[in-house]
Design a binder for these strands. Structure first.
Lengths: 359, 359
DNA sequence: CCGGTTTGCTAAACCGGTTTTGTCAGCCCA
DNA sequence: TGGGCTGACAAAACCGGTTTAGCAAACCGG
């Protein structure tokens, strides 16, 4: 075994075969431009030497990397624990793979998203959960990198894929309303930046859906009954506990993600309460496992995987330069009623919305 | 807006600033080697022109990509639907991000893993579920790429991280045995290649654990009561259904992944049977959601996230050249008993193991 | 047998950076 | 006053490929 084992380069092969670098390159990429005997001799020697063209050098000359980036404003270590992201990634992966692209995840590098973006070697990016007012979006745009926005605030100039967040939230709120609930808690998703995700994000749209639907039924949603946390099981538990410990006693909780809903259910169980007997819970996303939770989760369905697929398809089309007007796709949501919601318990029904019950 | 907007290069900046490329490069990387006034003037112009060093060119000269690869022998679109993978990736991401590395997923490109490997621009790779006899391992080794194997057959020459698969499986089997079960079904994970995953993979180790523990109790595990399928919810459902439709009537099923276990529970419920009343189910992995399923899943816990973290730490150490003997780490497993398992129903207890019950 | 085309291959330029080496002016000190 | 240093920058080589331009020999029709 050699000690340092310097990578064998195209020049090594060329020299060993007694030909030029060009010939070696041709042997690999345009074999028809070479005498068939020469070509196979070169290939033989290359193989014998264990030569593999350096992908980086290749990228440089061809001006394409063969991979697409998934951009998230949050650390991957938190994002990956959300089952939603699994399905979404699966959708992205499915059509990327089909078209021969690899997947590169781009997340804040030591806190800086823009640093991460500039280090990333991708042909295009799908950005998830980035609001349009994020400064990094401009950086990408200036870098001329094809991009599509998912779940963000589509103010227009970039292609985007979204779902009907507000409509979905309305369905969720209407559902608990119909079951007689009047004391309602909302578990909102923590934005990438602690305070203020901007006015147009997913969170805002869903919140508006909840709030307006409740308002139309004369039910107020005081700030004190809204908690914010990361979109994970623990995040949901903690958010619920925070509100509970502050004296909130809702009969229904509307969670902005299934993970949070599941966390809330766990927290509720730990308090010795039952779902949906004492407290109803509705989620958002309808992840694969939502049908198998205890109890099976009533939730707003969105085509998570389809969203990933649509995003990549869109991205590919802008990468291929059909540089027409930016396309905006909006996918539908619907309510899936399972067993985590039920009618208000009789004794609680008449409690006014603004006074927490004490049992 | 410019039409073609050619990328602005270091030469453009140099020319515009009336300096050499070297100066521009220094301004970015070694500012102390320049007169402070010159440096800031260059930076100013660079910024004004919207110049960003091309990461690919940078990679080429520095011989490092700044990202690590996750190699899977299966398509990402299937891998990502396994909640196990989410936690595992989160672990990988956590320590990668901490050390400033990006994440690149490498999966079979149009069916060829080795093609994918050669296109990948990474400084090192953690390979999950690759058995040591996989030919691509040799390719990587020959390419001189640092690598650590996770959940594979560690025959030795590469660093590896594994768990005590056999021990975990023994715990699962012993548990159902103790509950009185004698008619047992196994749901095994489908390997990357349809037939024959080699003799040493995860599947084999777990199978051995099941089989030997049962054998020690005098219980046989006929081939007819083993089904193989992808490690997903649907995969579990289908595998169970296949066996059921073939007349198998187990009182307990041992699944090699939580996803499959959940799928099996779904299938069982669809047949109108109860878990654990009529059939007990034990999973493997203990994913985040296992505590929240209906019913909460009895399963073999493994430190999924910790496995990812350990893998990257190991990888970093071999990347940094501490080229000592390959390290092999083995993480522990333990049984977590929740509510998907229970004692055999009275009427069934005496049925011999090799004759399927009929109700 | 001659001009034009094709075949098979090479030299050199290029991709966009980094790094090594070199140049030149100013300064210090004997 | 001149030799050695140092500071500030430039020129050129280099990373490892691809691609363009070109050249010599073989071929080819008339």
């Amino acid at each position: 075994m050699e000690q340092v084992a310097r990578r064998v380069t195209i020049a090594d092969v060329a020299q060993r075969a007694g030909v030029s670098k060009t010939a070696v390159s041709f042997a690999f990429n345009k074999p028809d431009r070479l005498n068939v005997a020469t070509a196979s001799r070169i290939l033989g020697i290359a193989n014998e030497l264990g030569y593999r063209p350096d992908p980086v050098a290749r990228m440089l000359t061809q001006r394409r990397t063969g991979s697409i980036g998934i951009l998230t404003p949050q650390d991957l270590s938190v994002i990956f624990t959300n089952p939603f992201f699994g399905s979404f990634s699966a959708g992205i992966a499915a059509v990327s793979e089909e078209h021969g692209y690899g997947l590169h995840f781009i997340s804040p590098l030591h806190g800086s998203l823009s640093r991460a973006i500039h280090r990333a070697t991708v042909d295009g990016v799908v950005a998830i959960g980035l609001t349009d007012d994020h400064p990094e979006i401009d950086e990408i745009r200036r870098a001329g990198l094809p991009m599509v926005l998912v779940d963000s605030a589509t103010t227009g100039t970039l292609a985007s894929v979204d779902i009907d967040d507000e409509g979905g939230a309305r369905l969720a709120a209407a559902h608990v309303l119909e079951l007689g609930h009047r004391t309602i808690m909302v578990l909102a998703i923590d934005g990438p930046r602690a305070a203020g995700i901007g006015e147009h994000g997913v969170v805002q749209r869903r919140m508006r859906g909840y709030r307006e639907t409740l308002a139309e039924a004369g039910v107020e949603l005081p700030e004190a009954s809204i908690a914010v946390g990361p979109a994970s099981i623990d995040g949901g538990s903690e958010a619920f506990d925070r509100l509970w410990d502050a004296g909130q006693r809702p009969t229904a909780v509307l969670a902005m993600s299934d993970a949070m809903a599941i966390g809330a259910i766990r927290a509720i169980h730990r308090k010795g309460r039952s779902v949906p007997g004492e407290i109803s819970v509705v989620g958002f996303d309808d992840v694969d496992l939502a049908a198998s939770t205890d109890p099976p989760l009533t939730t707003v369905h969105q085509p998570v995987r389809g969203k990933g697929e649509a995003a990549v398809r869109l991205l590919l089309s802008v990468m291929e330069g059909g540089q027409t007007e930016p396309v905006h796709r909006r996918l539908e949501t619907r309510l899936v009623i399972r067993s985590s919601t039920g009618p208000v318990a009789a004794g609680i029904r008449e409690v006014p919305a603004d006074r927490p019950t004490s049992a």
